[in-house]
Simulated scan of single mutants.
Amino acid sequence: MRQNWHSIREYESLRAMIIAGTTTAAAKQLGISQSAVSRSIANLEARVGNALFIRSGGRLEPTAEALGLNDALDPIFTALASIDQREPLGSAKPLLRVGAPPTIAHRFLHLRMSSFMKLQPDYDVFFDVCDSDRLIRNVADELYDVAVADFTTRQPGVMQIPFRRSKLVCLVPANSPLSEKDVISPADLEGYPIVSSVKRHPLRSTVDQMFARAKVEPNVVAETATTVANLEFVRAGVGVGFVNPFPIAESIGEGVLIKPIDDDVEFRTCFLLPASQAQSAGARALMRHIRISTRNDQWSEAIT
């Protein structure tokens, strides 16, 4: 009968793991032992019948099943938070609500958030990780004070402030013949196995249009929902992939090379804010901190 039980602790562990990326950090966030977090995740995976995290570069990245379950849990934790708020609060600290998609959250923002919280201890922080579609909806619905996203949007109710620019790159297995090329063109990939984004992802249409301009039919052998999954398929030698190099280039790891592409596709990483309300002091402080703490690199540069 165990499969019919629902454990708030297991759901808390899931949400902490999505944000923290390691059992050690999740345990510290929840104030419980590392083994308790691992046990909670294992129990939850057994009940839902799917893996909820995959290991990548020393971190545990959430699967699509984990992100979907996290979305479904939102109303439950919103209700619990509202119950807590009926009691007198022990702190008068302002709450800063921040959102990001998985790659930005785990490969870029978590370090900036940690340093921001040390420099700005007067804020309590709510840090949410979700897919791009829900991120945009939550900003428009004023559920976040600010979000950080590696894409632009025309969604009504969302104001965007670009702060980084980068160009589409090709991820190539280090032992591939393509590793000898300085620049990859679509024509180089005629018949070559390609790891692509899923069709709902904006990057998919961008890459498809690139191949169409070159009159090359892409040989898609796998589709992934996240940049991290794309990277790991390439590392395993499944094929080549196409990604926005920011911020994944900071932690690419061994076995994969980044190659520029002979096509001018630009990405802009943005702050997203609710258009219907004034920017909070916390949002302004966080955006300033992120700009200051992010240096230019080979693959991206600041937009001033």
Rank of each mutant, 00 (worst) to 15 (best):
Y11V: 10
E12C: 10
E12N: 13
L14Y: 07
L14A: 06
R15Q: 14
A16K: 03
I18F: 05
A20T: 01
A20C: 15
A20F: 02
A20P: 03
G21P: 07
T22K: 01
T22A: 02
T24C: 06
A25C: 06
A26G: 11
A26L: 04
A27M: 04
A27S: 12
Q29F: 02
L30C: 04
G31D: 07
I32W: 02
S33H: 13
Q34Y: 02
S35Y: 01
S35C: 02
A36Y: 00
V37K: 03
V37A: 06
V37T: 05
S38T: 12
S38E: 11
S38A: 15
I41T: 01
N43E: 09
N43L: 11
N43D: 12
E45T: 06
A46N: 14
A46R: 15
R47W: 00
V48D: 01
V48K: 02
V48A: 02
G49S: 07
A51T: 13
F53L: 03
F53C: 02
I54D: 14
R55P: 01
S56G: 04
R59Q: 13
R59H: 09
P62I: 00
A64S: 12
A66G: 08
L67T: 10
L67A: 07
G68I: 01
G68V: 01
L69Q: 01
D74A: 15
I76D: 04
I76A: 13
F77A: 09
T78G: 01
A81R: 14
S82R: 15
I83L: 11
D84T: 05
D84W: 04
Q85I: 04
E87R: 15
E87P: 00
P88E: 10
G90F: 00
